[in-house]
C-alpha cells in the first residue's frame, strides 16, 4: 500500500508568531514524511503546535522557514493562483463542524463550492457530482440538498465537510481534531466513514487529534508533539506498545480507558507544559521529565532511529 516516495515531505518547518520578545515558536523545526496511502496521526496536548502544523501545511498560517514538498513540488513559497492550485490537492477538515459551514448557504452549494471556484465541472455534471458526493457521506441529496447548513447537527455537518473536501479529489486530507466535538456514537460513524472514503478515493491522511485512542484507531504511523517539536514518531502499534520517549509514556499513562479493569494511574505526569514564550534549553520536556539529567539541559536531543521507522528525540530513550 505504501510506496517509498513520500507524498508530503516536511523539512525543518518553523512557524513563529509575533516578533521580538513576544515571539513564540508554535512549531520549532519539525520534519516528517507522509507516504501515499497512509494515515499519519499527530498527537499532543493543547499548545503543542499540532494544529499550527496542519494550518502551516495548508498555508493558512505562513511558515516562517523550512520546506513543504507535495509530490516533489515545494509549496512553501507559492503565491496567488499557484497557491490556490496547490491547496486544491490538499484539503482540510476543521474541528468545529458547525462553524466550518456557512449557515446561510444550501448544502449542495457548499459541496459544489470548490467546483465553482475552479469552474472545473459545470452544469448537469456538477450537480451529479455533488449528489454523488452527498450520497457517499450518507446524506440523501434529493431530500436534504436544498437545506441550509444551519439545519444540520454536528455529525451531519462534518459529513458535509467531508463531501466538500473530496470534491476536488485531493491527494492529502488534513483532519484537524475533526471528531473531538462529536458525541461518541456519532464519532464512531464519522471515523468509519473516513476509513471507507480513504480507501475508495485512495487518500492520504494527516490526522491531528488530542485523543490518543482515536488516533491509534485510524493511524498507520503516529507522531507525538511537545512544545513545537516532534519527540517521537513511529508505527502506531509499536509506539503505543513500547513508547521510547518519556513524554509518550506519560501521555499513554494518563489516558483513560473505558474499562474498569484498566490500572488506575497513580503516577501522573506532574506540572504543566512550560510557556512556549520561554522554552527550556536543551530538551523541551526536561522540566517535567523524571529521567532528566544535565545533558538534557545542555544539549537538544536529535531524532534517532531505534527501530525500523521508529524515531525518538531523547538522550535516554526507554528500552522496552
Amino acid at each position: 500500500m505504501t510506496s517509498h516516495v513520500p507524498l508530503l515531505s516536511v523539512r525543518d518547518l518553523t512557524v513563529v508568531f509575533g516578533s521580538g520578545s513576544h515571539a513564540v515558536s508554535a512549531v520549532a523545526g519539525i520534519s516528517f514524511d507522509i507516504f501515499p496511502g497512509e494515515t499519519l496521526g499527530l498527537v499532543g496536548e493543547s499548545g503543542c503546535g499540532k494544529s499550527t502544523t496542519g494550518k502551516a501545511l495548508m498555508k493558512i498560517v505562513a511558515p516562517t522557514s523550512g520546506s513543504i514538498e507535495l509530490d516533489g513540488i515545494d509549496v512553501t513559497r507559492q503565491k496567488g493562483r499557484a497557491l490556490r492550485n496547490a491547496r486544491s490537492r490538499m484539503q482540510m477538515i476543521f474541528q468545529d463542524p458547525i462553524s466550518s459551514l456557512n449557515p446561510r448557504r444550501r448544502i449542495k452549494d457548499i459541496v459544489a463550492e470548490p467546483l465553482d471556484c475552479w469552474k472545473s465541472v459545470v452544469g448537469v455534471e456538477r450537480d451529479d457530482l455533488v449528489a454523488d458526493l452527498l450520497n457517499k457521506v450518507g446524506i440523501d441529496p434529493a431530500i436534504y440538498g436544498n437545506r441550509y447548513a444551519r439545519q444540520f447537527s454536528g455529525g451531519q455537518c462534518q459529513r458535509i465537510s467531508i463531501a466538500r473536501s473530496l470534491a476536488m479529489r485531493p491527494k492529502l486530507l488534513i483532519c484537524d481534531e475533526m471528531v473531538s466535538a462529536l458525541d461518541v456514537s456519532v464519532q464512531a460513524q464519522i471515523l468509519n466513514l473516513l476509513q471507507d472514503l480513504k480507501e475508495e478515493y485512495g487518500l492520504t491522511l494527516l490526522f491531528i487529534a488530542h485523543d490518543l485512542a482515536v488516533v491509534k484507531n485510524v493511524s498507520d504511523r503516529v507522531a507525538v508533539m511537545y512544545l513545537g517539536k516532534i519527540c517521537e514518531i513511529g508505527p502506531a502499534d509499536n509506539l503505543y506498545h513500547s513508547p521510547a520517549h518519556p513524554y509518550t509514556k506519560a501521555l499513554l499513562g494518563a489516558a483513560l480507558e473505558a474499562d474498569p479493569d484498566s490500572p488506575v494511574h497513580g503516577e501522573v505526569l506532574q506540572g504543566e507544559p512550560p510557556s512556549p514564550l520561554d522554552p527550556p534549553s536543551g530538551c523541551r520536556f526536561r522540566t517535567r521529565c523524571p529521567y532528566a539529567t544535565e545533558l538534557c539541559a545542555n544539549e537538544e536531543p536529535q531524532p534517532r532511529e531505534i527501530a525500523p521507522g521508529h524515531q525518538v528525540a531523547c538522550h535516554f530513550p526507554l528500552v522496552p
Binding site: S153, G155, D183, V184, S185, V186, Q187, A188, Q189, L191, N192, Q195, D211, L212, A213, V214, K216, N217, V218, S219, D220, A236, D237, Y240, L252, A255, E257, A258, D259
Partner: peptide
C-alpha cells in the same frame, strides 16, 4: 453496549473498525 462499542480504545490494534450505531440522539 453501543456506547462501549463505539468508544475507541488504546488497547485496540490500529485500524480497528468501531461498531458504530446509526443515527443520533
Amino acid at each position: 453496549r453501543a456506547l462501549l462499542d463505539s468508544s475507541p480504545r488504546i488497547s485496540n490494534p490500529s485500524h480497528t473498525r468501531l461498531l458504530a450505531i446509526p443515527g443520533r440522539p
